[in-house]
C-alpha cells in the first residue's frame, strides 16, 4: 500500500466529512412575494437567524399571492408567506396547508391600505368611508383582500355591500388607471400607491382601513405534511422568523408621544437588507411607507381569521366545509391574540 494511496484515501474521507457537515444544515424552501411585507424572512436570512437554527433556506419568489398558496399546497415549497385571500382559504380548507404565525395586519396608527375617492367623486361629496353605497369601486379581484376590507367596512358602517358596484380590474396598475380616468368613483390602494395618487392629484385619501377595521392581513403558513413529518424544522423556522419579526418591529413600528411613527438608526440599518430583496427596488422612503405592522411576536388575531372565513362563506366565495380550527396550528407561537371562546 503506497503512501500516495493513503493520501488519496484521506483526502476522500475529508471531502466526504465536509459534505456531511454541509448536509447537517436542514434544507427548507419558502414561497414569497418580493414585497416589503415579506421583510422578516429577508432579515432572518441576511442576519443569519436561519443558519443559527441549522436551516438552509431557499426563497421561491412569485408575483401574486395565489401561486404561493398553490406552491405550498402542492408541496413545491415548505413554507409560504403572503396575504390571506378567499382562494387561500379554499386551498387551506382541502387540508394541504396550515397557518402558523402572523405577517402584516392592519393596526391602528399604521397606514397600510387606504380608501380613495376619485377627484371628481371627492368634489361631489365622496369624502368619508361611510359614503360607499351607490358608488362604483375598483378592486383587484373578486375574493381579494380589498374585497374583504370593503365587506368589513360595510358591516361596521352598516351598509349593504351589494349597494356598491365592484369592478374587478385584475391589477393595482389597472385600478390606478381607472381612478385616474374617472371610470370609477373610488378604490382601495396600498399606502404607497395611495400617496402617489393623492400627490398626482387625481384621487383623495378619505380614510385608512386601520381606522375602521383592524384585521389580520397576512400570515406565515406551512404545508400540512411538513408540519407532520418535520415538526422540529418548523419550530426552528418559526424561531428564526420570530427573531426577525422582533428586529423588524423594533426598527419600524416605533411611535412618538403624539402617535407619529419614527424611523431611527435601526430602521436605517434594516432598509438596505430589505432593498436587496424587494423588487422593483424601493427607495428608503418607499420602504418606510410600505412598512406594515407585523406583530413582534408573530401572534395572530385569531378571532379575525374565524371572521374572515365566515364572511367569505357568507358571500359564497369559500366552501361551507372549510373549518378555521383545522387550518390554524397555534402551537408554534405562544400567546396568540384574541382567541375565540369555544
Amino acid at each position: 500500500m503506497s503512501i500516495r494511496f493513503i493520501a488519496a484515501l484521506a483526502a476522500a474521507i475529508l471531502a466526504w466529512s465536509a459534505t456531511v457537515a454541509a448536509s447537517a444544515q436542514e434544507k427548507v424552501s419558502i414561497a414569497a412575494l418580493r414585497f416589503v411585507s415579506s421583510s422578516p424572512i429577508f432579515i432572518a436570512l441576511d442576519r443569519g437567524y436561519f443558519k443559527e437554527q441549522g436551516l438552509e433556506v431557499e426563497f421561491k419568489f412569485f408575483d401574486a399571492a395565489q401561486p404561493i398558496a398553490v406552491a405550498v399546497a402542492a408541496g413545491d415549497a415548505d413554507f409560504g408567506i403572503t396575504g390571506l385571500t378567499g382562494g387561500f382559504y379554499n386551498l387551506a380548507g382541502k387540508g394541504a396547508l396550515k397557518i402558523i404565525a402572523a405577517q402584516s395586519r392592519e393596526e391602528p396608527g399604521y397606514d397600510f391600505v387606504a380608501y380613495l375617492a376619485s377627484k371628481k367623486a371627492f368634489d361631489a361629496g365622496f369624502t368619508d368611508p361611510g359614503k360607499f353605497p351607490g358608488k362604483t369601486i375598483a378592486i383587484t379581484q373578486t375574493g381579494s383582500t380589498f374585497h374583504y376590507m370593503l365587506g368589513m367596512l360595510s358591516e361596521k358602517r352598516g351598509f349593504k355591500l351589494t349597494d356598491v358596484t365592484l369592478k374587478p380590474l385584475q391589477s393595482i396598475a389597472n385600478v390606478t388607471a381607472a381612478l385616474k380616468g374617472e371610470q370609477v368613483d373610488g378604490a382601495l390602494l396600498p399606502a404607497n400607491n395611495a400617496y402617489a395618487a393623492e400627490k398626482a392629484g387625481f384621487a383623495k385619501i378619505i380614510g385608512w382601513v386601520h381606522q375602521e377595521t383592524p384585521w389580520q392581513l397576512g400570515a406565515l403558513f406551512a404545508g400540512t405534511r411538513v408540519i407532520e413529518q418535520r415538526h422540529a424544522v418548523v419550530e426552528k423556522f418559526v424561531a428564526a422568523y420570530l427573531k426577525a419579526c422582533a428586529d423588524y418591529a423594533d426598527a419600524f413600528l416605533a411611535r412618538d408621544a403624539a402617535g407619529k411613527r419614527v424611523f431611527g438608526d435601526k430602521a436605517e440599518a434594516l432598509i438596505p437588507i430589505i432593498q436587496k430583496y424587494v423588487q422593483p427596488k424601493p427607495s428608503p422612503e418607499q420602504v418606510k411607507a410600505s412598512a406594515s405592522y407585523i406583530d413582534p411576536k408573530g401572534r395572530l388575531l385569531v378571532k379575525n381569521i374565524y371572521e374572515q372565513i365566515a364572511w367569505y362563506q357568507a358571500q359564497g366565495m369559500v366552501a361551507r366545509d372549510v373549518d378555521a380550527a383545522k387550518i390554524l396550528d397555534l402551537s408554534f407561537v405562544k400567546d396568540h391574540l384574541d382567541p375565540p371562546k369555544r
Binding site: 365592484l166 389597472n174 381607472a178
Partner: peptide
C-alpha cells in the same frame, strides 16, 4: 376587466378563489 357578472368573470373569480 370590471365585469361583475358573466361566465368569463365567473371563471376568473373562481380561479382567484381556487374554487
Amino acid at each position: 376587466i370590471g365585469a361583475e357578472y358573466g361566465i368569463g368573470a365567473f371563471i376568473l373569480s373562481a380561479g382567484n378563489l381556487m374554487q
